[in-house]
Structures are given as C-alpha cells and as structure tokens.
Write a protein that binds this DNA or RNA. Structure first.
Length: 224
DNA sequence: AGCTGCCCACTGTTTACATCA
DNA sequence: TTTGATGTAAACAGTGGGCAG
C-alpha cells in the first residue's frame, strides 16, 4: 500500500525558508512540480481517521497527560495523537518558520497545551518529513530529466547517422543543406539550447543564447 | 577544554488503515 | 457480511553525534 506523495498532500512549498537552504534541485522544478509542492498540508485520510479516533477516545487537545511523559499507570507510554487543531496550528507555524527559537517554542507549547519538548520534537519530525518528501520529488524530477535526455540523445544519434549516410551518398547536396539540429551548451550555466531558431553561434554574433538569456562563452557542437 | 543547547539522522513504539482468508 | 490476522505507512518520541556559542 504505497501511498503516493501527492495523495498524502504534504506541502513542500518552495517559498519555505527551508527549501533554498537544503534543496538545490527544487529550484529547477518546472510548473508541474511546483503544483505538487503547493498542495494542501494534511493527509485527508489521516485527518478523518484522527477525528474518528478523537470521538472514540475523547482524548485530544490538551496534552493533560504529558507532564508524566505520557506514561500510563502501568508505566507503558501512551502514544500522543495531536488534535486536528493542534496540528493545524503547528503547520501554520512551521510554514512561517521551520525552526523555532526558544521563545516561539514556549509560546507555541503554551498555546497548544503541550510541553516545549513535544513542540520541539514535532518540528524536528516535520523537518525530516519535508526533507524526505523533497528528496522524493527531486528524485522523480531527475528521473524525468534523465529520460528526456536519453530520448534526446537517441534522437540526435539517429540524426548523426542519417547525416553521415547522406554525406557519403551525395556530398554535393549535403553541402547545401540548412544546418541540422545543433545543441549548444553554455559553459557557465551548463544549460543546453537548441539553436535552430537562432543561428548566432555560427554567424557574426558569437554569443550563446540560452532560453533568451545571453551567455558569453559559446561552444558550438556540430555533427561530424 | 568542557559545557550547554540545538539540530539531524537513526531507530523504536504505537496507531490507523487496507487487505485477505 | 462480519471478523480477526497481518502488512504497511505515518506519527510521536528517545538516543547519540556534530556543531556553534
């Protein structure tokens, strides 16, 4: 029963102060990935489950059992389940600042009726979850990049083969052909562009245009 | 150099839910 | 259809190491 990340609906907002510090790949994400990252916060299934449990147990919201560390009379630790409201407040707070200073922590703990330690642990776990989900997103994105590049490579190999064959068969016609698809890699930003639309790599203007931005050290790659 | 507090990674326990016989 | 066993994912929490003040 592997739940997909988007089913879980965890928010991994790139606007989070956590994101730029820890995840470089996230900065490269295109629109679909962004949409995923901006999904709602709580897994709906879990929310309803907790609510049902709340109704059954009548516990929740107060952490009144926590000064003893949540242990029952027999010494067994009773697992705490945060209420929907507590979770919502914590999530809101997390979105504002993924790490807490001692004052914020104490205030939040008081507001929610929890121990500071519980708030601290919740934030630690929340950061870990965020990181895990982000890693999954990054992995998925890189996988798609790899597939795209593999496909592009295959296409270009084929094109090279065809051009070589053409060159052998009719060299004269080959000389008068328009330039084939050519990829140009910018050495500074390491991005690859298709210069079919701008042939300035092979004209007077030797600058390299990558997605509209002009880089200054052109490298032209042409089929042999 | 030792202390303290914080964070992270790892791990264990508990809980809820899905599936199947 | 109901029920109990089982597997899995998620949430909460403890522990130890690293690091900065």
């Amino acid at each position: 029963m592997m739940e997909r990340a988007d089913d879980l609906g965890l928010s991994l907002s790139l606007s989070s102060p956590l994101a730029p510090r820890t995840h470089h790949v996230a900065m490269l994400l295109h629109a679909p990935e962004r949409r995923f990252l901006e999904m709602p916060l709580l897994p709906a299934k879990r929310v309803s489950a907790v609510s049902a449990d709340e109704e059954r147990s009548g516990q929740r919201g107060g952490g009144s059992d926590d000064e003893d560390g949540g242990c029952g009379m027999d010494g067994s630790r009773k697992k705490l389940r945060l209420s929907k409201d507590q979770s919502a407040v914590l999530e809101d707070s997390f979105r504002e600042h993924p790490t807490l200073n001692p004052r914020q922590k104490a205030a939040l703990a008081q507001q929610l009726g929890l121990r500071s330690r519980q708030v601290e642990v919740w934030f630690q776990n929340r950061r870990a979850r965020t990181k895990l989900k982000q890693t999954e997103v990054d992995c998925e994105f890189l996988k798609r990049c790899c597939e795209t590049l593999t496909e592009e490579n295959r296409r270009l190999q084929k094109e090279v083969q065809e051009l070589r064959a053409l060159k052998l068969v009719s060299p004269h016609q080959y000389m008068h052909m328009s330039p084939p698809t050519t990829l140009t890699m910018c050495p500074s930003c390491e991005r690859v562009s298709n210069n079919n639309n701008n042939n300035n790599n092979f004209t007077g203007d030797r600058r390299n245009v990558v997605d509209g931005a002009i880089c200054h050290r052109p490298i032209a790659v042409r089929p042999q």
